[in-house]
């Protein structure tokens, strides 16, 4: 009946396939590249060999197998998980706050995690004695406490609960927590280097244990943001109009922020503060495809993973055998790339 007429914004299958191809290529590259060079066919062969009912002779030595599966693969997978989560959380925050500058650390998750980690590093008992490493635990708790404070503050403001008061509350809480963190860092200057290294972010310690640790939070976080992608479009017309369309903007905002923050807190706890991903990836997707969150969220999940894998390749190879903090790489290579997209794109960010 409506043949040939546009039926609105669609998540075209070729966008999804394209993004998935980029992600898989990034994963293969991430596993290939390193001090011991492997060929793409060796990597792909080894990956296929692990599938059920597939038995390939990959020609890899036991040592090479170990490099692929014990060293590189967990690190690459962690990069995928972290990149996806930060990108989706960034898109979600930009949607619920209708603010293009929003990122997952907006409401104090980053500052809270930083303070938690600093406290654990400066005053924590010898971390080697612990059953679980207290640093990610403290960072996780700090992130959740930071955002809870911001939310409580934003929602008890007398002048009205709007997304703007919430952002301002987040700014206040983040500034306060960062000041505390800096104070402790200065007082306990012998731990400065460790604190600083944590804050700049790294995937250096990644093993399968870290992947297992964050995976449940990330799966739930990504699931909720993905499920809420159409509601993010509804929120874009403003709270009053959205409420006349039968939805509750405050409730949607709360639920999406809770789960995006949970996922963000989990990845920050393990990797430190990796900046810029949550802004650059959703905006690149927006500029290249569509302003609809029904497109931005799924593509950001795929491309955010790919972006962080590629950034990590640079982080660990550019000055090998030393490593550059990945947060530095995401900004140094991400910012010019984003500037290029911004210049060549016809679309404008509101």
């Amino acid at each position: 009946m409506n043949a040939g007429r546009p039926t609105g914004t669609r998540l075209h299958w070729w966008w999804v396939v394209g993004a998935a191809v980029v992600l898989v290529a990034a994963i293969i590259a991430g596993v290939m590249i390193g001090a011991v060079r492997l060929s793409p066919s060796q990597v792909v062969g080894s990956m296929l060999d692990r599938l059920p009912f597939v038995d390939l002779d990959t020609g890899l030595t036991v040592r090479q197998e170990a490099i692929v599966w014990q060293i590189r693969m967990p690190r690459v997978i962690l990069a995928v998980v972290v990149g996806s989560m930060l990108s989706a959380a960034g898109a979600a925050y930009q949607g619920v706050f209708r603010n293009p500058l929003a990122d997952p650390y907006l409401l104090g998750a980053g500052a809270g995690a930083g303070l938690g980690a600093t406290l654990a590093i400066a005053y924590g008992p010898n971390t080697g004695d612990w059953l679980v490493d207290p640093i990610p635990l403290a960072a996780f708790a700090g992130a959740l406490i930071g955002v809870s404070f911001a939310y409580l503050l934003g929602y008890t403001v007398r002048s009205g609960r709007t997304s703007v008061t919430l952002i301002l509350a987040g700014v206040a809480v983040a500034a306060f927590l960062t000041a505390l963190q800096t104070f402790i860092q200065q007082r306990e200057s012998e731990t400065l280097r460790e604190v600083y290294g944590w804050i700049l972010g790294s995937l250096n310690t990644a093993g399968w244990a870290e992947v297992r640790l964050v995976a449940p939070y990330v799966v739930v976080g990504l699931g909720v943001v993905f499920a809420g992608r159409r509601l993010l479009d509804v929120l874009s017309v403003g709270d009053t109009d959205a409420s006349t369309l039968g939805v509750r903007p405050g409730r949607i905002r709360l639920v999406i922020v809770i789960f995006a923050t949970l996922g963000t807190a989990a990845v920050v706890a393990v990797t430190g503060l990796i900046g810029f991903v949550g802004i650059i990836v959703p905006h690149t997707v927006r500029l290249l495809t569509s302003a609809s969150y029904r497109v931005i969220v799924p593509l950001s999940i795929l491309l955010g993973g790919a972006f962080l894998v590629l950034a990590d390749i640079i982080a660990r190879t550019a000055v090998a055998p030393a490593e550059i903090p990945i947060g530095v790489v995401t900004a140094i290579f991400g910012a010019p790339f984003f500037a290029m997209i911004l210049r060549t794109s016809k679309a404008v960010v509101s």
Binding site: P6, S236, D241, S292, V348, V349, S350
Partner: peptide
């Protein structure tokens, strides 16, 4: 009314 930048008329 708020008309979100980049949103197609159909989607709106």
């Amino acid at each position: 009314p708020r008309y979100p930048q980049g949103m197609a008329v159909f989607d709106y």
